[in-house]
Design a protein around this nucleic acid. Structure first.
Lengths: 248, 248
DNA sequence: CCAAAAGTGTTGAGTCTACACCCATGC
DNA sequence: GCATGGGTGTAGACTCAACACTTTTGG
């Protein structure tokens, strides 16, 4: 990618994706281990000259996880000139075998558009890119050192996710097709960072009228088996009309 | 500005500001009449190579209104390649006396970062820029034809403003230092596009604990004179701690 | 003194919170 | 059978929407 000519990319512009997953009762973020530094980075990429910025984010998402048709949302654009790190980028070029002088397009200042994605952890297959030696999920509470301002970007994404969750039930994007109510609750508790009452949670969630309870119950669990639920897109559309705000 | 060399601006990047004001019980938006077209445009500008994107927005805001220290917030970045309009931009260049071929920096694709601002109408002094022949407030419900995707940008700004108003009382940014409760209510009604109950509005608004009632009452009005209120920044900080969400 | 606008209070409906109770399952 | 987790129900606190009443001012 970095070998390619300046001419094919929109100059000074990138996208970065904060890809959230949920596993083992933990909120996870997909990160790349840089070849050029002892740090990790958010999956990102450049925008082709005639490509929609959002399409670029979709492309990044798909190439890092193999997933398509994912909940993806722009949340902020980071335009501090000091955010670019020429030293790192030079090392990055070297790591893929490119020698360049200061005028190289990749060494200029970059503005990045941040997107966050909610994906089904079990369906994603992490793939490193050319500049990275690994691609892995990290627990959002135990993040490694990140390059440049990626810590800041992540923080902003998390903030947006929390707000969003308050007036739009988007949690199930992080879960498989069918899931149990306790699982959904753990998810909410993790994202919001606080405990919720089991019974009130269930009532409120069902009150949105966007979940279908399946006949099937979870198998092989200790104690009483919980029902499975699935998300109902049609009911969701109806529910949106009526509006479903309010906080926890 | 457009005479200046490519070298001083971040290529392919602009900012556009949706500047809201409130006057005569109407929500207003500041627009520029293009010299190069029979349409109006949102105030915008380019970003210097070493300038923070947000600083560029502040600069635009100040040069169009004379105002500083204004409520300003990034709301979305518009990255559709089809949003740029080479024909318009060529006319724009001509209007300031520049002849250029297709490779001119200003004729390339532009990504724009959208900011919205809330200003005190009575304090702003509209100033056209080099590419425009007029700068004026328009009622947001009676907008003229806008260039490119500016209608879309405006729509998105309005949407964001409405949502924001639901979980953060930001309305007084649009009013002078001191204002009456009925004035504040008209403002909310205009932005939200619906009538609100006078008494419940007052109770809820005062409940936030961020307004000071002044001794003074409004002079020279028919009927009973309403009190003036002023916004209290310190109390606001305290109120934010406790959280003040919930919708109307 | 009357109409219109503003300040203040009340009440019933609805919602949310904090529980109690019962049921199912593995050990 | 008992500890644990899940499904369902309920009483009290709280909030909110809809309204009544009083006060002030200009004409």
């Amino acid at each position: 990618m970095l070998h390619e000519e300046e001419a094919i990319f929109q100059p000074g512009l990138s996208v970065d994706c904060v890809i959230f997953g949920f596993h083992d009762n933990q909120l996870k973020v997909l990160l790349l281990k840089m070849k050029a530094a002892d740090k990790w980075a958010l999956p990102g990429g450049f925008v082709y000259k005639e490509e929609d910025v959002e399409d670029a984010a979709v492309r990044v998402l798909q190439s890092r996880t193999g997933l398509r048709n994912i909940f993806l949302q722009q949340f902020h654009t980071f335009g501090d000139p000091a955010r670019s790190n020429r030293k790192l980028n030079r090392a990055l070029l070297r790591s893929v075998g490119v020698q360049a002088d200061d005028s190289h397009w990749f060494l200029q200042r970059f503005i990045t558009v941040g997107y966050y994605a909610l994906v089904d952890f079990s369906g994603a297959v992490p793939q490193p890119d050319a500049t990275s030696e690994a691609c892995a999920w990290w627990d959002f509470q135990e993040m490694p050192a990140l390059v440049m301002d990626h810590q800041h970007i992540l923080q902003k994404a998390l903030e947006t996710l929390r707000k969003q969750l308050n007036d739009q039930p988007i949690g199930y994007n992080l879960l498989p097709e069918k899931f149990t109510m306790p699982e959904l609750q753990r998810l909410y508790e993790t994202i919001l960072g606080k405990q919720l009452d089991r019974r009130n949670f269930q009532r409120k969630m069902l009150g949105y009228g966007i979940l279908n309870r399946l006949e099937e119950r979870k198998q092989g669990v200790a104690h009483k088996a919980p029902y499975y639920y699935s998300f109902d897109k049609e009911k969701y559309a109806v529910a949106l009309e009526n509006g479903l705000q309010q906080g926890w």
